[in-house]
Simulated assay, not measured.
Amino acid sequence: SEEVRKWLKGLAPDKADGPNATHPRLYKKLSTVLYIPLYTIYQLMFQLGQWPSEWKHSAVCPIYKKKDPAEYSNYRPISLIDVPSKMLE
Rank of each mutant, 00 (worst) to 15 (best):
E2Q: 15
E2M: 12
E3A: 13
E3S: 13
V4G: 00
V4H: 03
K6D: 13
K6N: 10
L8A: 05
L8W: 01
K9V: 01
K9Q: 08
L11A: 01
A12S: 13
A12K: 13
A12L: 08
A12R: 12
P13Q: 11
P13I: 01
P13H: 04
P13L: 00
D14R: 06
D14P: 04
D14C: 03
K15C: 04
K15W: 00
K15G: 05
A16E: 05
D17L: 07
P19H: 06
P19V: 07
P19G: 11
A21W: 04
T22S: 08
T22W: 11
T22D: 08
H23R: 08
H23Q: 13
R25F: 12
L26E: 02
L26T: 11
L26P: 03
K28Q: 05
K28W: 02
K29T: 14
K29I: 15
S31H: 03
S31E: 03
T32P: 05
T32S: 13
V33Q: 12
V33D: 10
V33I: 13
V33P: 07
L34R: 01
L34K: 07
L34W: 04
L34I: 04
Y35F: 15
Y35V: 00
I36Q: 12
L38G: 07
L38P: 03
Y39F: 12
Y39H: 14
T40D: 15
T40Y: 14
Y42D: 07
Y42G: 06
Q43F: 13
Q43S: 14
L44F: 09
L44H: 11
L44Q: 13
F46L: 13
Q47Y: 10
Q47R: 12
L48T: 09
L48K: 15
Q50D: 09
Q50W: 12
Q50L: 14
W51V: 11
P52A: 01
P52M: 00
S53W: 05
S53K: 14
S53I: 07
E54H: 04
E54K: 11
W55V: 04
K56M: 05
H57L: 14
H57T: 09
H57M: 15
H57D: 06
S58T: 09
A59W: 03
A59S: 14
A59G: 06
A59Q: 11
A59T: 15
C61Q: 11
P62N: 00
P62G: 06
I63W: 02
Y64N: 09
Y64Q: 07
Y64T: 02
K66Q: 13
K66A: 15
K66N: 15
K67V: 12
K67G: 12
P69K: 14
P69A: 10
P69Y: 09
A70T: 14
E71C: 14
Y72C: 13
Y72R: 12
Y72H: 11
S73H: 12
S73T: 10
N74E: 08
Y75K: 02
Y75P: 04
R76F: 09
R76H: 07
R76M: 10
P77E: 08
I78M: 02
I78S: 07
S79T: 11
S79M: 08
L80Y: 04
I81D: 00
I81W: 04
D82Q: 03
V83P: 01
V83H: 01
P84A: 00
P84V: 01
P84R: 00
S85A: 13
S85E: 07
S85H: 03
K86L: 04
M87V: 03
M87E: 00
L88G: 03
L88C: 09
E89S: 09
E89Y: 04
E89P: 02
E89C: 02
E89I: 02
